[in-house]
Structures are given as C-alpha cells and as structure tokens.
C-alpha cells in the first residue's frame, strides 16, 4: 500500500490525481485554479491558469495549461484519460483576485476577472457544471482538492481555511 501524496502544481501547470492522493497549488493571485473531477471515480485534475486567452500568446508553442481557453478542455481530457466519465464531470474554481489597485485601470488590471469569465465560458461549452467557487477579492489563495471527498480547501494569508 502506498501512502497518500499531495501532488503540487506550479503556475501555468496542470496535473491529475486519483484518491487517496490530493492535489494543490500555492499563491494564486490573478491566476485561477480550476478543478475538474469525477466524484464517483475519485479522480481529479487541477490547472493553474494565468491568462484568459491563447490569442494573447505572441507566437511560439502554446502551453495549454497557461490559458483558460486551452486549459479547461485539455484538463477535461486528462481527467477522462485517468478514468473520469464524460457527463459525470464537475468543476470547482478559486482565484482571480485583483492584487493591486491602481487609479489607471489598464487591461492587465482586470486579468483576474477575465480569467474567471473565460474558465466559466469554457466549462459551459463542455457542459461541466461549476458546483462551487471562491473567486475575486484582493487576496492570494492556496488551494487543495481531495478527490475522495470532493472538498476544495482554500487558505488565504489573513483568514481561516475555508472549504467549498
């Protein structure tokens, strides 16, 4: 028997875990942590998305996990390849904060909100319901998902741990 592991993903990365393992990512600011899971199969994938759209890329190879429009579909595929069933998939998300406030509201200032919008749009397109979310605000978040229980724990620097 192997013991449960906490698989950690970094910024612009994604990964899939099967229970009893859990998956986590640290220090989400304007980035969004998306979890797609199949509770019945206890399998879950998480992506740490940085930017809303791959059209923002200035050429080169596209890292699917970095952009909301490519990450959601790629993540759903990964989860299904690991045993998740289409039609049974659900999503939870957290992040998309605005860490700094400036008087000049440039395009990049709203990046958190735009990331959240695009993630939701893609989930809707794939008919994956968002069952819980903790988005927006002005605080960084560290999140951990347990595919066994389907619980997403969210920690911020100033507040207590929240479970959704």
């Amino acid at each position: 028997m192997s013991t449960a592991q906490a698989v950690k993903i970094g910024i612009a990365e994604m990964e899939v875990v099967i229970a009893p393992n859990v998956i986590r990512t640290c220090g989400l600011g304007s980035c969004v942590g998306v979890v797609i899971y199949d509770a019945g199969k206890a399998v879950a994938g998480m992506a740490h998305v940085m930017l809303p759209h791959s059209s923002m890329a200035r050429g080169g190879v596209i890292n699917a996990a970095k952009y909301a429009d490519t990450a959601v579909e790629a993540l759903a595929q990964l989860v299904m390849a690991a045993g998740g069933r289409k039609g049974m998939l659900k999503a939870k998300l957290a992040g998309g904060a605005q860490m700094f406030s400036f008087s000049t509201a440039g395009d990049m200032m709203r990046i958190g909100a735009r990331n959240v919008e695009e993630v939701k749009k893609q989930l809707e397109r794939l008919h994956i319901p968002v069952v819980a979310e903790d988005v927006g605000g002005h605080s960084g978040r560290t999140i951990e998902f347990n595919p066994q229980t389907g619980v997403l724990s969210i920690r911020t620097a100033a507040q207590e741990i929240k479970e959704i």
Partner: peptide
C-alpha cells in the same frame, strides 16, 4: 500577501 500571488502579476507580460 503570498509572494506567488503578487509576483505572478509581474509575469503576465513575459508569459505571453
């Protein structure tokens, strides 16, 4: 706040 949350903002232009 968490350094990842604040510094990632400075990576957005580079990440494109």
């Amino acid at each position: 706040d968490m350094i990842g949350a604040v510094l990632s903002f400075g990576l957005l232009e580079l990440s494109r």
